[in-house]
Design a binder for these strands. Structure first.
Length: 425
RNA sequence: GGAACGGUGCCCGAGUGGUUGAAGGGGCACGCCUGGAAAGCGUGUGUACGGGCAACCGUACCGAGAGUUCGAAUCUCUCCCGUUCCGCCA
């Protein structure tokens, strides 16, 4: 959400943002509703002022004047009731419109229509040089007896997965490693819910618009979040924080649920795109200062990169273009990790800076040095998402016999083992 | 799921249908005092929207929403949340 005053004064910039982000919203219409609402409010408030003044006279009035005053109050109340529906309608319309207004992209963001126009910033790490034909992760899992796609699909449908044996320990190891790693870099570990109220989804910006991505709980208003960003962003909703409490940073582990509506047919095989998974998410709530926030952006991006380096995985950093960055975002970089079987980099991390766009929705304010209440800035980035991260992990570290070499950083979480799996070919 | 009690400002807490945007305390800010500090004393200290160059004015807000009333933090209803107890249960 943007400040209404800002929209009024910067209508051109807002329209441009909507255009380059591909957000369908009529800013002129919004401003028209806003003007009409202001006029309505002025009329209503003038009448309320009159009603209040009149009501104050009643107890002091002489008995013979009292009836007339009360009658005048009744008339005013009646007139006010008449204006109420229009007022309410305008307020509701404006509110809905405001929730759809996109944030202004940072000046550095390339203009583009979709992910094909994202810009690669750099590549890091050494691509694996196999002297054998590498298997893809689906085959590796199957040969090792670590998966059972048919049976789990029978129970839980497509886009579900299960892991057996050592792959389970590997999944846990990666998550635990990420929590420890990020904790070591100053983020507070947090184990949090996936269930959240709809307001939390509005607060994070996933609603309105992303409703079809979210699983609902029958008979309950709670819904299943696709990322810990949703509940964590609402953790301090409506509070007035003090400057000393900032920044608030978390490495939040949670389950994540995504209906993946609209991605039919994409990545149906394997662990890339599943309905239910686990994720460690980096979240930062900091003061409303772009320079400070951008430092945090670099930091949580660096955290993810260091994590991948520790996992000895080659990756590239991509700057998302305007059309691929989401309405609320000011700046967004994806990290894509090398998948040998496909000979492509695939997204494993998504780093975002949202300015005060989420904080305005959530009511996340703090008192600045001057005692003024201001909306905070928020950022988030993936720490590690499992099982998706297992795809590059298994594929890049596979050996000729089908066993998996464990990167040194992960060994402490796997009882010191350097290799998992049995020779299977 | 049942029952009881609660939800007021940054925090704690008072609140009789009308001068209550809200007592009192704490905290915080500024000033006095002090060599400096503490203590003490004094003053100040809500948010949002609208109007105004400004001082300031108006409106709304005491969990949310409806209602009663000339007038609601205060009365009624519905809902939400919290705490405690009971029941049930992975």
């Amino acid at each position: 959400m943007l400040d209404l005053k800002f929209i009024r004064e910067n209508a051109g910039a807002v329209k441009h943002a909507a255009q380059v982000k591909g957000v369908d919203i009529d800013i002129d219409d919004l401003l028209r509703v806003d003007r009409e609402l202001v006029e309505l409010k002025q009329r209503v408030e003038a009448m309320q002022a009159e009603r209040n003044a009149n009501a104050k006279l009643v107890p002091k009035a002489a008995p013979d004047e009292r009836a007339a005053l009360i009658q005048k109050g009744k008339d005013l109340a009646e007139e006010l009731r008449g204006l109420e529906p229009a007022l309410r309608a305008h307020e509701d319309t404006l509110k809905v419109m405001l929730l759809r207004v996109p944030n202004i992209p940072h000046a550095s963001v390339p203009v583009g229509k979709d992910d094909s126009e994202n810009v690669e910033l750099r590549r890091e790490g050494q691509l694996p040089g196999f002297d054998f034909t590498p298997l893809d992760h689906v085959d590796l899992l199957e040969k090792q007896g670590w998966s059972d796609p048919e049976r789990v699909a029978r129970v839980s449908g497509s886009r579900s997965y299960l892991l057996k044996g050592e792959a389970v320990m590997l999944e846990m190891a990666v998550l635990t490693f990420a929590l420890n790693f990020l904790s070591g870099r100053g983020l507070t570990p947090l184990s949090t819910t996936a269930l959240a109220r709809p307001e939390a989804f509005v607060g994070s910006g996933h609603f309105p618009g992303g409703e079809d991505q979210v699983y609902r709980i029958e008979g309950d208003e709670l819904m299943l979040a696709g990322t810990a960003e949703v509940p964590v962003n609402s953790l301090y909703a409506g509070e007035q924080l003090s400057l000393e409490q900032l920044p608030i940073t978390f490495a939040a582990i949670s389950a994540a649920f995504r209906s993946e509506a609209g991605s039919a047919g994409r990545d149906v095989r394997g662990l890339i795109r599943v309905h239910e998974f686990r994720k460690v998410e980096q979240y930062v709530l900091c003061e409303a200062n772009e320079a400070v926030a951008l430092e945090w952006f670099a930091k949580i991006l660096g955290n993810a990169e260091a994590l991948l380096a520790a996992l000895e995985l080659p990756y590239r950093v991509v700057q998302n273009c305007t059309g691929d960055m989401g309405a609320g975002k000011v700046l967004m970089y994806d990290i894509e990790t090398w998948v040998p079987s496909e000979q492509v980099y695939r997204e494993t991390h998504s780093c975002s800076y949202l300015g005060d766009w989420q904080a305005r929705r959530t009511g996340l304010r703090y008192r600045d040095a001057g005692g003024k209440l201001v909306y905070a800035h928020t950022l988030n980035n993936t720490g590690v998402a499992a099982p998706r991260i297992l795809v590059p992990l298994l594929e890049n570290h596979q050996q000729a016999d089908g066993t998996i070499r464990i990167p040194a950083a992960l060994r402490p979480y796997l009882g010191g083992r350097e290799v998992i799996g049995q020779p299977v070919r």
